[in-house]
Amino acid sequence: MTLSYAGYADPSWLHDIAVEKLELIIDHVEQDSQHLADGEHVSGPSADEYRARVERTASFEGRVVTSVGSAERLLEQADPAIYHGQGMTCVWRAATAACRKAKLALGLPDDDTPDESECRSSCANLAYTDRDIEDVQRRRERHRADAVDPLAPKPRRDRAAAQAAQLSGIIDRHKAQGVSDAGERTA
């Protein structure tokens, strides 16, 4: 076992990672594009940027990739830097990323990708799709149930109630951004 990958002098298997990542990105953009075409609503500070990046990347017709270098270059060009997380979507821009700023403030090294564990609800990179809101609604219902659990300690009930209220705010803003004054659905 210890002589498996580490014992080989040929690390070419690592090159497959670039190709796999490229395929993953293409699949995600295709799904996002289809959801938008089907009328999925997107809200949040980066909603417009999300739609623009998906549209720009979805128009990618494909290329023949004959080497790992080609795959890596194509990955740099095709990657829209959209990361779907739990109940949120990050439209990554390093300059405005709250998670990156938090890590730098702590003296930690920053990556060129979001860190969901350091995500802040005030981040300018956040967007919420209808799929994200469905997840947020499920989490809100769990918190609401925890908030009225008579067997839970009061601090836990209070925390659950506060989290449910925070999630309700996200849901309400998503719905409000999706309906115009005339009652019609907006982009």
Results as ranks from 00 to 15, higher is better:
T2V: 03
T2Q: 12
L3P: 09
Y5R: 15
A6V: 11
G7Q: 09
D10H: 00
P11I: 07
H15F: 14
I17N: 13
A18G: 15
V19H: 03
V19R: 07
E20R: 13
L22K: 01
L22R: 02
E23H: 01
I25P: 00
H28E: 15
Q31K: 02
S33Q: 07
S33R: 13
S33G: 11
A37F: 04
G39N: 07
E40R: 10
V42M: 02
G44N: 15
G44L: 15
G44P: 12
P45A: 00
P45L: 01
P45W: 00
A47R: 01
E49R: 05
E49D: 07
Y50R: 02
Y50G: 04
R51P: 03
R51C: 02
A52L: 04
R53V: 01
R53N: 05
E55L: 08
E55V: 05
R56Q: 14
R56N: 08
A58Q: 04
R63D: 07
R63W: 05
V64S: 05
V65F: 00
T66P: 04
T66A: 15
S67H: 00
S67T: 03
S67V: 00
G69T: 01
A71F: 14
R73Q: 14
R73W: 12
R73A: 07
Q77Y: 10
A78F: 08
D79P: 10
P80Q: 00
P80H: 02
I82V: 01
G85H: 04
Q86N: 08
Q86D: 12
C90I: 02
C90M: 04
W92D: 05
W92M: 04
A94N: 09
A95M: 06
A98M: 09
A98W: 06
A98L: 09
R100K: 08
K103P: 05
G107A: 03
L108E: 09
P109T: 14
P109H: 13
D110G: 11
P114R: 03
P114K: 02
D115N: 07
E116L: 15
E116W: 13
E116G: 15
R120P: 12
R120G: 14
S121C: 09
S121E: 14
S122Q: 10
N125G: 00
N125M: 02
L126T: 07
L126Q: 10
Y128G: 10
Y128D: 05
T129V: 11
D130K: 07
D130S: 06
I133E: 02
I133N: 01
E134R: 12
V136S: 10
R138I: 15
E141C: 11
E141V: 14
H143I: 10
R144D: 12
A145Q: 06
V148W: 06
P150Q: 09
P150F: 09
L151H: 11
A152C: 06
A152M: 14
A152H: 11
A152G: 09
K154C: 03
R156V: 07
R156P: 02
R157W: 04
R159T: 09
A160K: 08
A162Y: 03
A162G: 11
A164I: 12
L167D: 04
G169E: 13
G169S: 10
I171P: 09
I171E: 12
D172A: 13
R173G: 06
R173N: 14
R173M: 13
R173V: 15
K175V: 13
A176H: 13
S180I: 10
D181P: 04
A182Y: 08
A182M: 13
